[in-house]
Design a binder for these strands. Structure first.
Lengths: 193, 193
DNA sequence: GACAAACACGAACGGTCGTACTATTATTGA
DNA sequence: TCAATAATAGTACGACCGTTCGTGTTTGTC
Protein backbone atom coordinates (compact mmCIF):
# COMPACT_ATOMS: atom_id res chain seq x y z
CA UNK A 1 0.00 0.00 0.00
CA UNK A 2 2.76 2.42 0.93
CA UNK A 3 5.07 1.43 -1.89
CA UNK A 4 2.58 2.45 -4.51
CA UNK A 5 1.92 5.76 -2.86
CA UNK A 6 5.62 6.53 -2.71
CA UNK A 7 6.07 5.79 -6.38
CA UNK A 8 3.05 7.84 -7.26
CA UNK A 9 4.29 10.83 -5.31
CA UNK A 10 7.62 10.56 -7.09
CA UNK A 11 5.88 10.49 -10.44
CA UNK A 12 3.77 13.50 -9.51
CA UNK A 13 6.81 15.49 -8.43
CA UNK A 14 8.62 14.81 -11.69
CA UNK A 15 5.43 15.44 -13.63
CA UNK A 16 4.97 18.73 -11.84
CA UNK A 17 8.37 19.86 -13.01
CA UNK A 18 7.70 18.76 -16.57
CA UNK A 19 4.28 20.39 -16.61
CA UNK A 20 5.69 23.66 -15.34
CA UNK A 21 8.16 23.70 -18.21
CA UNK A 22 6.22 22.29 -21.14
CA UNK A 23 2.62 22.74 -20.09
CA UNK A 24 0.19 20.29 -18.59
CA UNK A 25 -1.03 18.96 -21.93
CA UNK A 26 2.48 18.43 -23.25
CA UNK A 27 3.40 16.00 -20.47
CA UNK A 28 3.25 12.66 -22.29
CA UNK A 29 3.02 9.34 -20.51
CA UNK A 30 6.06 8.03 -22.35
CA UNK A 31 8.30 10.97 -21.57
CA UNK A 32 7.15 11.05 -17.97
CA UNK A 33 7.86 7.33 -17.61
CA UNK A 34 11.33 7.85 -19.04
CA UNK A 35 11.99 10.64 -16.56
CA UNK A 36 10.67 8.52 -13.70
CA UNK A 37 12.75 5.56 -14.90
CA UNK A 38 9.90 3.14 -15.20
CA UNK A 39 7.86 1.55 -17.94
CA UNK A 40 5.07 3.37 -19.67
CA UNK A 41 2.51 0.78 -18.70
CA UNK A 42 3.76 0.63 -15.12
CA UNK A 43 3.33 4.34 -14.75
CA UNK A 44 0.01 4.35 -16.56
CA UNK A 45 -1.42 1.84 -14.10
CA UNK A 46 -1.20 4.41 -11.33
CA UNK A 47 -3.60 6.64 -13.16
CA UNK A 48 -6.31 5.31 -15.42
CA UNK A 49 -6.10 7.91 -18.11
CA UNK A 50 -4.12 10.93 -19.08
CA UNK A 51 -6.94 13.15 -17.93
CA UNK A 52 -6.80 11.66 -14.44
CA UNK A 53 -3.04 12.10 -14.40
CA UNK A 54 -3.48 15.76 -15.22
CA UNK A 55 -6.09 16.19 -12.53
CA UNK A 56 -3.93 14.43 -9.96
CA UNK A 57 -1.04 16.65 -10.95
CA UNK A 58 -3.17 19.72 -10.34
CA UNK A 59 -4.38 18.37 -7.02
CA UNK A 60 -0.86 17.53 -5.95
CA UNK A 61 0.25 21.02 -6.94
CA UNK A 62 -2.70 22.63 -5.17
CA UNK A 63 -1.80 20.79 -2.01
CA UNK A 64 1.82 21.88 -2.20
CA UNK A 65 0.75 25.41 -3.02
CA UNK A 66 -1.59 25.57 -0.09
CA UNK A 67 1.02 24.24 2.31
CA UNK A 68 4.00 26.24 1.02
CA UNK A 69 2.49 29.50 -0.12
CA UNK A 70 -0.82 30.25 1.56
CA UNK A 71 -0.59 28.55 4.94
CA UNK A 72 2.77 30.01 6.02
CA UNK A 73 1.52 33.49 5.14
CA UNK A 74 -1.52 32.97 7.34
CA UNK A 75 0.78 32.44 10.30
CA UNK A 76 2.08 35.96 9.88
CA UNK A 77 0.39 38.96 11.43
CA UNK A 78 -2.64 39.99 9.38
CA UNK A 79 -2.29 42.94 7.05
CA UNK A 80 0.67 44.15 5.04
CA UNK A 81 3.13 41.75 6.66
CA UNK A 82 1.00 38.82 5.64
CA UNK A 83 0.61 40.07 2.09
CA UNK A 84 4.32 40.62 1.70
CA UNK A 85 4.96 37.14 3.05
CA UNK A 86 2.49 35.72 0.57
CA UNK A 87 4.28 37.38 -2.32
CA UNK A 88 7.62 36.12 -1.04
CA UNK A 89 6.24 32.61 -0.77
CA UNK A 90 4.78 32.82 -4.24
CA UNK A 91 8.12 33.91 -5.61
CA UNK A 92 9.80 30.97 -3.95
CA UNK A 93 7.14 28.61 -5.25
CA UNK A 94 7.68 29.99 -8.72
CA UNK A 95 11.42 29.73 -8.41
CA UNK A 96 11.39 26.13 -7.18
CA UNK A 97 9.86 24.68 -10.31
CA UNK A 98 11.98 24.91 -13.43
CA UNK A 99 9.18 26.29 -15.56
CA UNK A 100 7.60 28.46 -12.91
CA UNK A 101 4.10 28.25 -11.51
CA UNK A 102 2.26 25.26 -12.89
CA UNK A 103 -1.08 27.01 -12.57
CA UNK A 104 0.07 29.80 -14.84
CA UNK A 105 1.20 27.20 -17.37
CA UNK A 106 -2.02 25.22 -17.01
CA UNK A 107 -4.11 28.36 -17.36
CA UNK A 108 -2.68 29.01 -20.80
CA UNK A 109 -3.01 25.37 -21.74
CA UNK A 110 -6.59 24.80 -20.66
CA UNK A 111 -8.34 28.11 -21.07
CA UNK A 112 -10.01 26.72 -24.19
CA UNK A 113 -9.96 23.00 -23.43
CA UNK A 114 -13.22 22.22 -21.67
CA UNK A 115 -13.32 19.20 -19.41
CA UNK A 116 -12.56 17.99 -15.93
CA UNK A 117 -8.99 19.28 -15.99
CA UNK A 118 -10.16 22.78 -16.76
CA UNK A 119 -12.81 22.49 -14.06
CA UNK A 120 -10.21 21.49 -11.48
CA UNK A 121 -7.99 24.35 -12.55
CA UNK A 122 -10.80 26.87 -12.26
CA UNK A 123 -11.63 25.70 -8.77
CA UNK A 124 -8.02 26.13 -7.70
CA UNK A 125 -7.79 29.59 -9.24
CA UNK A 126 -10.99 30.78 -7.62
CA UNK A 127 -9.76 29.47 -4.30
CA UNK A 128 -6.49 31.33 -4.80
CA UNK A 129 -8.28 34.58 -5.58
CA UNK A 130 -10.40 33.99 -2.52
CA UNK A 131 -7.27 33.77 -0.41
CA UNK A 132 -6.14 37.09 -1.80
CA UNK A 133 -9.52 38.62 -1.07
CA UNK A 134 -9.44 37.40 2.53
CA UNK A 135 -6.01 38.87 3.04
CA UNK A 136 -7.32 42.23 1.91
CA UNK A 137 -10.25 41.89 4.30
CA UNK A 138 -8.01 41.14 7.25
CA UNK A 139 -5.77 44.03 6.21
CA UNK A 140 -8.78 46.28 6.51
CA UNK A 141 -9.59 44.85 9.91
CA UNK A 142 -6.15 45.64 11.34
CA UNK A 143 -6.17 49.06 9.74
CA UNK A 144 -3.47 48.48 7.12
CA UNK A 145 -5.99 49.10 4.34
CA UNK A 146 -8.69 51.76 4.12
CA UNK A 147 -12.08 50.41 5.22
CA UNK A 148 -13.63 51.12 1.82
CA UNK A 149 -11.19 49.19 -0.36
CA UNK A 150 -12.60 46.76 -2.92
CA UNK A 151 -11.14 43.38 -1.97
CA UNK A 152 -11.92 41.86 -5.35
CA UNK A 153 -10.06 44.67 -7.00
CA UNK A 154 -7.11 44.00 -4.72
CA UNK A 155 -7.08 40.35 -5.77
CA UNK A 156 -7.07 41.41 -9.42
CA UNK A 157 -4.30 43.94 -8.87
CA UNK A 158 -2.05 41.61 -6.92
CA UNK A 159 -2.50 38.62 -9.20
CA UNK A 160 -1.80 40.82 -12.22
CA UNK A 161 1.41 41.88 -10.58
CA UNK A 162 2.44 38.27 -10.00
CA UNK A 163 1.63 37.37 -13.61
CA UNK A 164 3.81 40.21 -14.82
CA UNK A 165 6.57 39.03 -12.54
CA UNK A 166 6.22 35.53 -13.91
CA UNK A 167 6.57 36.61 -17.52
CA UNK A 168 9.51 38.92 -16.86
CA UNK A 169 11.25 36.31 -14.78
CA UNK A 170 10.55 33.10 -16.66
CA UNK A 171 10.25 34.20 -20.28
CA UNK A 172 12.29 37.37 -20.58
CA UNK A 173 14.80 36.50 -17.84
CA UNK A 174 14.84 40.16 -17.03
CA UNK A 175 17.48 40.96 -14.40
CA UNK A 176 15.42 43.70 -12.81
CA UNK A 177 12.32 41.60 -12.30
CA UNK A 178 12.51 41.47 -8.51
CA UNK A 179 13.08 45.20 -8.25
CA UNK A 180 10.17 45.89 -10.59
CA UNK A 181 7.96 43.68 -8.50
CA UNK A 182 9.01 45.29 -5.24
CA UNK A 183 8.39 48.77 -6.61
CA UNK A 184 4.98 47.79 -7.94
CA UNK A 185 4.01 46.05 -4.71
CA UNK A 186 5.05 49.05 -2.61
CA UNK A 187 2.94 51.31 -4.79
CA UNK A 188 0.02 48.90 -4.67
CA UNK A 189 0.05 48.70 -0.90
CA UNK A 190 0.34 52.47 -0.68
CA UNK A 191 -2.71 52.89 -2.89
CA UNK A 192 -4.76 50.68 -0.62
CA UNK A 193 -3.49 52.19 2.61
CA UNK B 1 2.30 34.14 -57.58
CA UNK B 2 -0.79 35.64 -55.99
CA UNK B 3 -2.69 32.41 -55.55
CA UNK B 4 -0.07 30.89 -53.31
CA UNK B 5 0.16 34.01 -51.19
CA UNK B 6 -3.60 34.15 -50.77
CA UNK B 7 -3.76 30.55 -49.65
CA UNK B 8 -0.89 31.08 -47.27
CA UNK B 9 -2.50 34.12 -45.69
CA UNK B 10 -5.68 32.14 -45.24
CA UNK B 11 -3.78 29.35 -43.55
CA UNK B 12 -2.01 31.80 -41.28
CA UNK B 13 -5.27 33.44 -40.25
CA UNK B 14 -6.83 30.11 -39.34
CA UNK B 15 -3.61 29.02 -37.67
CA UNK B 16 -3.56 32.20 -35.65
CA UNK B 17 -6.98 31.42 -34.28
CA UNK B 18 -6.03 27.84 -33.47
CA UNK B 19 -2.78 28.90 -31.83
CA UNK B 20 -4.55 31.46 -29.68
CA UNK B 21 -6.85 28.75 -28.40
CA UNK B 22 -4.63 25.71 -28.07
CA UNK B 23 -1.15 27.17 -28.01
CA UNK B 24 1.42 27.51 -30.74
CA UNK B 25 2.92 24.06 -30.19
CA UNK B 26 -0.44 22.33 -30.21
CA UNK B 27 -1.29 23.49 -33.73
CA UNK B 28 -0.75 20.31 -35.72
CA UNK B 29 -0.30 20.29 -39.47
CA UNK B 30 -3.11 17.80 -39.90
CA UNK B 31 -5.65 19.69 -37.84
CA UNK B 32 -4.71 22.98 -39.45
CA UNK B 33 -5.09 21.43 -42.90
CA UNK B 34 -8.50 20.12 -41.94
CA UNK B 35 -9.57 23.58 -40.77
CA UNK B 36 -8.20 25.16 -43.93
CA UNK B 37 -9.93 22.49 -46.01
CA UNK B 38 -6.86 21.33 -47.81
CA UNK B 39 -4.53 18.37 -47.77
CA UNK B 40 -1.84 17.97 -45.16
CA UNK B 41 0.91 17.80 -47.77
CA UNK B 42 -0.50 20.73 -49.72
CA UNK B 43 -0.42 22.88 -46.64
CA UNK B 44 2.96 21.63 -45.55
CA UNK B 45 4.47 22.67 -48.89
CA UNK B 46 3.87 26.32 -48.02
CA UNK B 47 6.17 26.02 -45.04
CA UNK B 48 9.11 23.66 -44.97
CA UNK B 49 8.80 22.54 -41.41
CA UNK B 50 6.57 22.96 -38.42
CA UNK B 51 9.12 25.29 -36.89
CA UNK B 52 8.94 27.61 -39.89
CA UNK B 53 5.16 27.51 -39.75
CA UNK B 54 5.29 28.60 -36.12
CA UNK B 55 7.71 31.40 -36.91
CA UNK B 56 5.59 32.58 -39.82
CA UNK B 57 2.56 32.52 -37.56
CA UNK B 58 4.36 34.72 -35.07
CA UNK B 59 5.51 37.10 -37.80
CA UNK B 60 2.03 37.28 -39.24
CA UNK B 61 0.65 37.99 -35.78
CA UNK B 62 3.33 40.58 -35.06
CA UNK B 63 2.44 42.39 -38.26
CA UNK B 64 -1.26 42.39 -37.42
CA UNK B 65 -0.47 43.47 -33.87
CA UNK B 66 1.68 46.33 -35.03
CA UNK B 67 -0.95 47.55 -37.50
CA UNK B 68 -4.01 47.09 -35.30
CA UNK B 69 -2.74 47.81 -31.82
CA UNK B 70 0.38 49.94 -31.79
CA UNK B 71 0.12 52.05 -34.95
CA UNK B 72 -3.41 53.38 -34.39
CA UNK B 73 -2.45 54.41 -30.86
CA UNK B 74 0.51 56.35 -32.20
CA UNK B 75 -1.90 58.46 -34.24
CA UNK B 76 -3.50 59.68 -31.05
CA UNK B 77 -2.19 62.62 -29.10
CA UNK B 78 0.85 61.62 -27.02
CA UNK B 79 0.33 60.98 -23.34
CA UNK B 80 -2.61 59.55 -21.47
CA UNK B 81 -4.92 59.55 -24.50
CA UNK B 82 -2.46 57.45 -26.43
CA UNK B 83 -1.99 55.01 -23.59
CA UNK B 84 -5.72 54.58 -23.13
CA UNK B 85 -6.09 54.03 -26.86
CA UNK B 86 -3.36 51.41 -26.73
CA UNK B 87 -5.14 49.52 -24.00
CA UNK B 88 -8.42 49.71 -25.90
CA UNK B 89 -6.73 48.39 -29.03
CA UNK B 90 -5.10 45.61 -27.06
CA UNK B 91 -8.47 44.63 -25.63
CA UNK B 92 -9.94 44.53 -29.10
CA UNK B 93 -6.99 42.48 -30.35
CA UNK B 94 -7.46 40.08 -27.49
CA UNK B 95 -11.19 39.87 -28.10
CA UNK B 96 -10.89 39.22 -31.83
CA UNK B 97 -9.05 35.94 -31.48
CA UNK B 98 -11.03 33.14 -29.89
CA UNK B 99 -8.25 32.22 -27.48
CA UNK B 100 -7.03 35.71 -26.78
CA UNK B 101 -3.61 37.15 -27.46
CA UNK B 102 -1.43 34.69 -29.28
CA UNK B 103 1.72 36.11 -27.74
CA UNK B 104 0.44 35.36 -24.27
CA UNK B 105 -0.30 31.80 -25.35
CA UNK B 106 3.06 31.46 -27.09
CA UNK B 107 4.86 32.85 -24.06
CA UNK B 108 3.58 30.06 -21.91
CA UNK B 109 4.30 27.50 -24.60
CA UNK B 110 7.85 28.51 -25.43
CA UNK B 111 9.30 29.91 -22.24
CA UNK B 112 11.26 26.68 -21.84
CA UNK B 113 11.51 25.54 -25.46
CA UNK B 114 14.75 26.99 -26.81
CA UNK B 115 14.99 27.51 -30.54
CA UNK B 116 14.16 29.89 -33.34
CA UNK B 117 10.50 30.15 -32.38
CA UNK B 118 11.37 31.27 -28.89
CA UNK B 119 13.89 33.73 -30.32
CA UNK B 120 11.25 35.25 -32.59
CA UNK B 121 8.83 35.49 -29.69
CA UNK B 122 11.38 37.21 -27.47
CA UNK B 123 12.12 39.78 -30.16
CA UNK B 124 8.43 40.56 -30.49
CA UNK B 125 7.96 40.87 -26.74
CA UNK B 126 10.95 43.16 -26.32
CA UNK B 127 9.65 45.30 -29.14
CA UNK B 128 6.26 45.45 -27.46
CA UNK B 129 7.78 46.50 -24.16
CA UNK B 130 9.78 49.10 -26.04
CA UNK B 131 6.56 50.54 -27.42
CA UNK B 132 5.20 50.81 -23.90
CA UNK B 133 8.39 52.50 -22.75
CA UNK B 134 8.22 55.05 -25.56
CA UNK B 135 4.64 55.87 -24.70
CA UNK B 136 5.69 56.63 -21.16
CA UNK B 137 8.49 58.81 -22.47
CA UNK B 138 6.18 60.82 -24.67
CA UNK B 139 3.74 61.08 -21.79
CA UNK B 140 6.50 62.71 -19.79
CA UNK B 141 7.23 65.08 -22.65
CA UNK B 142 3.69 66.36 -22.85
CA UNK B 143 3.45 66.63 -19.09
CA UNK B 144 0.98 63.82 -18.46
CA UNK B 145 3.58 61.95 -16.44
CA UNK B 146 6.03 63.28 -13.86
CA UNK B 147 9.47 63.91 -15.38
CA UNK B 148 11.12 61.42 -13.04
CA UNK B 149 9.00 58.35 -13.78
CA UNK B 150 10.77 55.09 -14.56
CA UNK B 151 9.59 54.16 -18.06
CA UNK B 152 10.70 50.55 -17.70
CA UNK B 153 8.67 50.29 -14.56
CA UNK B 154 5.68 51.68 -16.41
CA UNK B 155 6.06 49.01 -19.08
CA UNK B 156 6.14 46.34 -16.38
CA UNK B 157 3.12 47.78 -14.60
CA UNK B 158 1.01 48.14 -17.72
CA UNK B 159 1.86 44.77 -19.18
CA UNK B 160 1.12 43.12 -15.84
CA UNK B 161 -2.26 44.76 -15.90
CA UNK B 162 -2.97 43.43 -19.37
CA UNK B 163 -1.90 39.95 -18.35
CA UNK B 164 -4.25 40.05 -15.40
CA UNK B 165 -7.02 41.20 -17.69
CA UNK B 166 -6.26 38.35 -20.06
CA UNK B 167 -6.51 35.71 -17.38
CA UNK B 168 -9.69 37.11 -15.85
CA UNK B 169 -11.29 37.50 -19.24
CA UNK B 170 -10.18 34.39 -21.07
CA UNK B 171 -9.79 31.79 -18.34
CA UNK B 172 -12.11 32.86 -15.55
CA UNK B 173 -14.67 34.60 -17.79
CA UNK B 174 -15.11 37.06 -14.97
CA UNK B 175 -17.95 39.47 -15.69
CA UNK B 176 -16.24 42.38 -13.97
CA UNK B 177 -13.00 42.11 -15.88
CA UNK B 178 -13.39 45.32 -17.86
CA UNK B 179 -14.30 47.31 -14.77
CA UNK B 180 -11.36 45.86 -12.87
CA UNK B 181 -9.07 46.81 -15.68
CA UNK B 182 -10.44 50.34 -15.91
CA UNK B 183 -10.08 50.89 -12.19
CA UNK B 184 -6.53 49.57 -12.20
CA UNK B 185 -5.59 51.63 -15.24
CA UNK B 186 -7.00 54.81 -13.72
CA UNK B 187 -5.01 54.20 -10.57
CA UNK B 188 -1.88 53.41 -12.56
CA UNK B 189 -2.11 56.61 -14.57
CA UNK B 190 -2.76 58.58 -11.41
CA UNK B 191 0.35 57.14 -9.80
CA UNK B 192 2.48 58.24 -12.72
CA UNK B 193 0.90 61.66 -13.04
C1' DG C 1 -2.96 26.66 -77.54
C1' DA C 2 1.73 25.05 -75.85
C1' DC C 3 4.95 25.06 -72.01
C1' DA C 4 7.12 25.84 -67.77
C1' DA C 5 6.34 27.04 -63.24
C1' DA C 6 3.66 27.10 -59.23
C1' DC C 7 0.49 24.69 -56.52
C1' DA C 8 -2.09 20.89 -54.51
C1' DC C 9 -2.86 16.04 -53.69
C1' DG C 10 -2.58 10.96 -51.99
C1' DA C 11 0.11 7.58 -50.21
C1' DA C 12 3.54 6.16 -47.33
C1' DC C 13 7.46 6.51 -43.82
C1' DG C 14 9.20 5.91 -39.02
C1' DG C 15 7.79 7.62 -34.51
C1' DT C 16 5.13 8.66 -30.66
C1' DC C 17 0.67 9.23 -28.73
C1' DG C 18 -2.89 7.24 -25.19
C1' DT C 19 -4.76 2.98 -23.92
C1' DA C 20 -5.78 -2.14 -23.35
C1' DC C 21 -4.55 -6.47 -22.30
C1' DT C 22 -1.58 -10.27 -20.18
C1' DA C 23 2.23 -11.92 -17.59
C1' DT C 24 5.57 -11.46 -14.12
C1' DT C 25 7.59 -9.83 -10.06
C1' DA C 26 7.35 -7.49 -5.19
C1' DT C 27 5.11 -6.54 -1.25
C1' DT C 28 1.98 -7.42 2.22
C1' DG C 29 -0.93 -9.45 6.11
C1' DA C 30 -2.37 -13.69 8.47
C1' DT D 1 5.74 -19.01 5.28
C1' DC D 2 2.38 -18.68 1.95
C1' DA D 3 -1.41 -17.21 -0.39
C1' DA D 4 -3.46 -12.75 -1.69
C1' DT D 5 -2.78 -8.63 -3.59
C1' DA D 6 -0.46 -4.69 -5.36
C1' DA D 7 2.95 -2.99 -8.50
C1' DT D 8 5.48 -3.18 -12.58
C1' DA D 9 6.80 -4.78 -17.14
C1' DG D 10 5.92 -6.38 -21.89
C1' DT D 11 3.53 -6.23 -26.01
C1' DA D 12 0.25 -4.72 -29.17
C1' DC D 13 -3.39 -1.62 -30.99
C1' DG D 14 -5.18 2.20 -33.93
C1' DA D 15 -4.64 7.06 -34.42
C1' DC D 16 -2.07 10.85 -35.33
C1' DC D 17 2.49 13.20 -35.57
C1' DG D 18 5.93 15.76 -38.92
C1' DT D 19 7.95 14.83 -43.18
C1' DT D 20 9.06 12.99 -47.99
C1' DC D 21 8.04 11.76 -52.58
C1' DG D 22 5.92 11.22 -56.94
C1' DT D 23 2.07 12.67 -59.56
C1' DG D 24 -1.46 15.41 -61.12
C1' DT D 25 -3.74 19.92 -61.67
C1' DT D 26 -4.00 24.76 -62.11
C1' DT D 27 -1.95 29.11 -63.52
C1' DG D 28 0.36 32.81 -66.06
C1' DT D 29 3.35 33.81 -70.34
C1' DC D 30 4.63 33.69 -75.02
Amino acid sequence: MTKGTDTKLGILQIGLDMASRLGLEAVSIGELAKAAEMSKSGLFAHFQSKEKLQIELLEYAADLFSRNVVAPALKKKAGIDRIRALVDNWNRWTGQLAGGCIFVAASADFKDRPGKVRDALLIQQESWLDSLRRMAQSAIKVGDFRPDVDCDQFAFDLYSLLLGFHLYYKLLHNQETRRRQRTALDQLLKNYR
